[in-house]
Design a protein around this nucleic acid. Structure first.
Lengths: 355, 355
DNA sequence: CATAGGATCGTAAACGTTTACGGAATGCGT
DNA sequence: ACGCATTCCGTAAACGTTTACGATCCTATG
């Protein structure tokens, strides 16, 4: 705890240089670890900087070297996102930062206001050059932002796939693997009529999830029934709606796959209201483990992964595409699908065997 | 959609000026709405800027005028926060932005890595002068950050109270009102032994909540029993623990107040395991309404508020303390307690009357 | 007509930093 | 003693913008 208090206010590197009676250039070199400086004077400079609490002004530095040492993570605080994600982004952020910190890169989150077009918002942020690189999330199936970023020649990576992504770097959860595993498991338990919930197919996730589902059924020789695909929001409310739809079907499915774990709360509720017990009368598999999954009754069968580590991977993918860091993170993996593991609960292991 | 494509890459205001054959100073004045410029040339400049996609470089501007037009919201991605808050901050962010947008202020989120001391992190951010003003959240009961910000003379406001806050601006939820209302209601229903859950009293919230609880009991002539204060994490797991503790008590309380709605999930679960039905055998009141509260069985009695509007208030409080905006937002309210309303569920309206 | 003054614009300095360049001092070999 | 390489440091230019100041032109007023 050796920073100042009784010292004159630190105005900039100039005062620091005067205080040390060294030229301003040498001070800068000393602070930045440049070679042309005596090891002893470097020590003096660093000590003085620490003592006077000097930190380089970011604007000056950025202006000169055209770099900000800041990475932006763009998120959208849409109503959907707010209701739906259980701090997914905060967890990813932790992983990202653990990598960025090693290079003195700071991560900031850029929340796009929900009354502003994400494309326009991003354009503004890019133009202001407040960040060196960007991570965009909540990718749409067709997402103009990729073109924008490519044209602006600003390094970026995406959290989530998109049709527009081309050869650009991204990382995403293995939705395909999840739905495959879920279907396999349910089929092994004797199910043939398996419903699935998914968001609108505009969202890339909605498309991928259902496609995986279709192929998985095909693999088992089960016909794909469009009526069993239920589009709903990824929230408790959405889960309630899904159950509603299920109950409306003339021939009720014996199993349902939820794309978001929170939905189980609403789904359970609606099923209970109808006297249907999850895990006994109908099998439920949820996607993505959350703390509350194991507190549901019956505990939800779902899929676990380390979102933090996904952030680590994504950070490395991004850095590997930044000229200044690409020598550290070789460009081997530029696109990655992040695996999840099944966590068996009791929501799908019911005693009633189908027919 | 009139921005460039076939134009030469926009390097800066200088190119724009050459393209228009106007001096660089005039262009700047035109863009910034300064008075000394002919209305017609201003139009020309604005049109050309739009067409060529010119946006002022933030570093240059910041360096010159010592202002960034960016407001920072510091959050902490601690494990506790991640498990606990259901996108509370994203919602607040929406309210903040709706105000900031009116003044061309951008909001960025500064997530403090969980392996870094929040104080040091903040110090770094302040020194780098990446933001004009700051909002800090998750205030501790004793929080050195207030001194830091005051000394740095950077405008700030706090989301959450603190002992260290002095006359600084803040906004906070009305925890006191909530616990008062909850106790009143439970007492009116005939309860005398009311338990309460709260986080550690290091967290300011933990202290305030329990103090309000103590005073409310006093008002009703009920003795304060330390054993009925259960410290637990604000998560499903925490709720489970609370129920555990309740069951361990020799004389079981007839009601319990939860400080966080999510805890109800774990609490319900543990109670059910013990054959105790919430709403019939024990009354439960939760704090802060969340989408899932109404999907619990029985629906949770809890407290509702517009977190978005809280953000609006907080933004205005902050701006009123910034010299550049204090003429717009008069300094009437610098500290504000945000009210909540009771949303009756069925978790406390049980038929069994106490003795 | 002379001039005051307003309207509009150009010029150049400043913001704080990094870095290319050159200079001084030193060490070493001949 | 001389040349040369090495080590260290100071000087100054550059990054893109804003803005104080002064210059110019025009109009109105005496």
């Amino acid at each position: 705890m050796a920073h100042g208090g009784k010292h004159p206010p630190m105005k900039g590197i100039r005062q620091l240089a005067e205080h040390l009676d060294i030229s301003i250039g040498t001070v800068s070199r000393a602070l930045n670890g440049k070679p042309d400086v005596n090891e002893e004077t470097r020590k003096r400079v660093l000590a003085a900087a620490e003592q006077l609490g000097y930190v380089a002004n970011q604007s000056g530095r950025s202006l000169r070297q055209g770099t900000t040492n800041v990475i932006g993570l763009m998120i959208q605080s849409s109503k959907e996102t707010v209701e739906n994600s259980d701090n997914f982004f905060l967890t990813v952020t932790g992983g990202l930062q653990s990598v960025f910190a090693r290079h003195n890169l700071d991560l900031i989150m850029l929340p796009c206001p929900n009354d502003e077009d994400p494309y326009e918002y991003l354009k503004r942020m890019v133009a202001r050059r407040i960040v060196d690189a960007l991570i965009i999330s909540e990718t749409q199936r067709i997402d103009k932002r990729f073109d924008l970023l490519a044209k602006a020649k600003i390094p970026f990576a995406a959290l989530g796939r998109s049709l527009s992504i081309g050869q650009h770097p991204w990382a995403d959860l293995d939705f395909d693997g999840v739905v495959n595993c879920a279907v396999d498991r349910l089929v092994a338990l004797g199910h043939r009529r398996i419903a699935i919930s998914a968001p609108s197919s505009d969202i890339n996730l909605g498309f991928i999830f259902v496609e995986g589902y279709r192929r998985a059924l095909e693999r088992h020789g089960i016909d794909f029934e469009p009526a069993l695909v239920i589009r709903a929001k990824s929230s408790e409310q959405g889960g309630y709606q899904v159950a509603d739809e299920l109950l409306r079907l003339e021939e009720r499915p014996t199993a349902v796959i939820l794309i978001y774990e929170l939905m189980a709360i609403g789904l359970y509720r609606r099923l209970m209201e109808a006297g249907i017990i999850p895990g006994r009368d109908i099998a439920v598999v949820g996607f993505r483990e959350a703390p509350r999954a194991k507190f549901l009754q019956p505990p939800l069968t779902c899929f676990r992964t380390s979102v933090h580590d996904l952030g680590v991977e994504l950070a490395e993918i991004l850095l590997s595409s930044m000229p200044a860091y690409s020598h550290i993170y070789p460009k081997t993996k530029r696109q990655m699908i992040w695996p999840l593991q099944l966590v068996p609960g009791e929501s799908d292991s019911f005693h009633l065997k189908v027919e």
